[in-house]
Design a protein around this nucleic acid. Structure first.
Lengths: 236, 236
DNA sequence: AATCCAATCTACCGATGCGTAAAGTAGGGC
DNA sequence: GCCCTACTTTACGCATCGGTAGATTGGATT
């Protein structure tokens, strides 16, 4: 019936094969998500058979974890290198350089970014993903602490905020109707984020906080529409 | 062997049953994610048998979509109500009220927020989830456009940024080591975000943008560690 | 050129989980 | 009290998919 075992395509060094598998896995996982992607998909994308994927990439969990780690490591290295390579810059500029490296990684390695950021934080890899994102937040916190002259613990919530803002802006760039074009998109995006975020961070340093008008204080917000008011919600 | 069919628990109106099923589904999906949760889990959580879950909730896909829509509708309604209920407020205050309602929904209905925001944007529900998040961004854009006196299209990227920042801050609050305590957490979180974001947005209105130091312009950033991975992957 | 090893393929197994069918039971309106 | 129907339990069909076994072949070495 079927000829058994077609010619083996080529004999390649294990490192090359492993990188092929990892590249394919990143691409497939970024497009379909962890659960949506099958190992057959990865094999097909890599141009290999499934046993080779298992030989070089391990189980599906191990393979996904390897994708996560490789891409996170790349992103962290590039941001760190950008922020620290020229210590003559002032901290604010270094923060901008770090952000630019972040967006540069996003725009040039979209699949890797997607694997890291658009995956579910619920489910089996929640801890893994949160830990990796935490390292990125920590790096942002270090830059901000230096730039603002504040202790890291004080800026930590704002580091989360800044990273979230970067992710949101990236979302706009990736899905927007008329994204910024050109090779210097990272420059533009980093500038936009600095423009939107820096004045607030700077105000934070001097202790100025936003306060609501007096007549709004103490009001507990709208109860209607949130807390189980209607006995039955007849939506649809 | 012994299909003894234990007592039917109770005869309830279809709407009540449907809400039970939806509540259970939101809880289970938020804890385990779409793929991690099984329909048996939903049935167990609802205290019902699996056929009843299918009778009232439809297929797993339909059930998840219904969860998404109900929670998104609630969130949108509460934010809109908060921002528009008192038109005597100035736009900036209305933005703060909207943010506070957002965080109020987060802190009081954590499961619903998780279903909406911590699910994968890759995979089969990507379009659905992105559309719902887009409506939230549109609402933020409307508030910001009014508050800043700018056209909606101009503030759209910053609306994405603000929503991402809110999500990042929420992440910190949910997973942080020492989250803000008390019932007025939403007040505190909204205040933190306004403090961090408003000065930048205000600067935006007056056209002031952040610019890098002159000697950094035009540098293309670190190529090392980011660029082109491999010449291989000869797919398609 | 003959040989051997490892790389590769095809084909398969078993588990998981969605969705449904069959059969029995009880609440509640008449 | 009777019947209808909502509800329960149990079991199963079927598809998908992770993971593996055995057959097969390329290519470096001698």
């Amino acid at each position: 019936m079927t000829p058994t075992a077609r010619p083996a395509r080529q004999r390649l060094a294990p490192e090359v094969r492993r990188r092929q598998v990892l590249d394919a896995a990143v691409a497939v996982f970024s497009e379909q998500g962890f659960h949506g992607a099958s190992m057959d998909d990865v094999a097909a994308r890599a141009g290999l058979s499934k046993p080779m994927v298992y030989a070089h990439g391990g189980s599906k969990d191990e393979l996904f974890a390897a994708c996560l780690h490789r891409e996170a490591e790349r992103l962290l290295r590039s941001v760190e290198a950008a922020a620290t390579e020229d210590t003559s810059n002032d901290p604010q500029t270094r923060l901008w350089l770090g952000l630019r490296a972040f967006f540069h990684a996003l725009t040039t390695r979209r699949a890797g970014w997607t694997v890291l950021y658009r995956q579910a934080s619920t489910g089996e890899f929640a801890g893994e993903i949160d830990a990796l994102r935490g390292r990125i937040v920590a790096q942002a916190a270090a830059l901000m602490a230096e730039g603002l002259g504040m202790p890291q613990e004080a800026v930590r919530p704002y580091a989360h905020t800044l990273v979230g803002a970067a992710e949101g802006l990236a979302d706009w760039w990736l899905t927007g109707p008329a994204p910024v074009t050109g090779d210097d998109a990272a420059d533009v995006l980093a500038g936009m984020l600095m423009s939107a975020a820096w004045p607030g961070l700077d105000a934070l340093r001097s202790g100025r906080v936003w306060t609501p008008p007096q007549d709004q204080r103490g009001r507990t917000g709208p109860e209607r529409g949130i807390g189980s008011s209607s006995p039955v919600s007849p939506e649809d």
